[in-house]
Design a protein around this nucleic acid. Structure first.
Lengths: 211, 211
DNA sequence: CGACTTCAGTGATAAAGTCACAGTCAATCT
DNA sequence: AGATTGACTGTGACTTTATCACTGAAGTCG
């Protein structure tokens, strides 16, 4: 039942030992895996579902940093686990998920005994750094209308997304009013249909407006 | 000669072996440690000086992501080293530096044999993720005038910084014109004195304008 | 059915980014 | 030295994005 690709690489003894010492967590949608200021209890290995990680600035604004899905590792937790610092971000379950909680001791042991486990952790870290670097660039330099269109394409290629303007603003790290106005403009151009709490994408091509 | 705190934790045998297999790099100011698209040759351990890491977006704009100083580890390189991906960012030496280059094999061996080395790496990773998360928040939500003032305070508490407006724009991830105008406004308020290629900070208090 | 809450739309204004260009300063080259 | 060149700075005009303040519309629940 406890399936996560990073555990596959372990030898039988180590895997057996690990499985005896970890906890399986059931994560219903809406559940908070951790919040800012909290301390880390263990390393979550995500087995399924979808979990978003977002942070809230001093200004009170929030922005989604990245998402975790099946076979992901909550890299953010490692830093907190190792140094004892508190989380700076918050993780919210979007789609009902299952995760394994690896306590500090087991993590240390796996890092010590399995080169494959280490590789998995390092890869995960690398990907996360990459994600964040891309996000910095996105937020710093790209135009909001393009980013909104891309988000819609990625999340509702030509169907319907259930999301409020406020939530979409957090996805993009902007203000609700900005999203409302841009969406309204897209509706005028017949690219989306708006209704309370959902957006129907009707005519967004891969490069609708010239870059 | 080769001093980096993470090596102190190693036992004698391991340290001796490591020192025999690493290369010391002299890094004069201006030297490029790596550029975007390049592949990683080893893990740099920074022994001194200062190196800035910045990336350039598709738009052609650049932004400084973070800096490395004495006893830092170029965490970014680990991901590239382990997965073979190319660098996405660029590292430029600001103050003449020395660094140790740890090749892949030695890195693997250290990760395998030293719990302290692993801890150092993990800590470094954690800090980097934290830095980037803070940067995302900064770029997404904070006002440019405040950020500029803070930058000036941090880099020239009440002295002079040698920097062009263009370089300062890259520090903050904005456009040169924006920096020029904000600086001019600060000069009108007698908080800085401007001259070609340098800025003299004369009257910037910790919270000059109300947050 | 109201009363309440959440969500969406919009005008007015301020901040930031873009484009185009002019002026200034310093270094280099006959 | 004077001319030329290139990097640096300043600024107007305009667009995009953010903020503030408010209105109305859509769902929820007593």
């Amino acid at each position: 039942m406890a399936r996560h690709s990073i555990l596959d690489s372990l030898n039988d003894t180590l895997r057996k030992e690990t499985l005896e010492n970890i906890r399986v967590m059931e994560l219903p949608p809406g559940q908070i895996l951790f919040t800012a200021g909290e301390h880390c209890q263990g390393l979550p290995l995500v087995m399924g579902g979808r979990i978003k990680v977002q942070m809230t600035g001093v200004s009170g604004h929030s922005i989604v940093l990245y998402r975790m899905q099946a076979d992901d590792i909550c890299t953010l937790s490692i830093g907190c686990l190792m140094t004892g610092r508190a989380y700076r971000a918050e993780a919210v379950v979007e789609e009902g998920a299952e995760a394994l909680m690896i306590p500090r001791g087991v993590f240390d042991r796996l890092m010590d005994q399995s080169a494959e486990f280490r590789l998995g952790i390092m890869e995960s870290y690398g990907r996360r750094l990459d994600d964040l670097m891309l996000l910095v660039e996105e937020v710093a330099f790209r135009r909001m209308d393009r980013r909104l269109e891309e988000w819609l394409l990625a999340h509702a290629a030509s169907g319907t997304v259930v999301i409020t303007h406020q939530e979409l603003a957090v996805e993009l790290g902007t203000a609700r009013e900005v999203v409302s106005r841009l969406l309204k403009e897209l509706e005028r151009r017949d690219m989306v249909k708006l209704s309370r709490g959902k957006i129907e994408v009707t005519g967004l091509a891969e490069s609708s407006s010239p870059a």
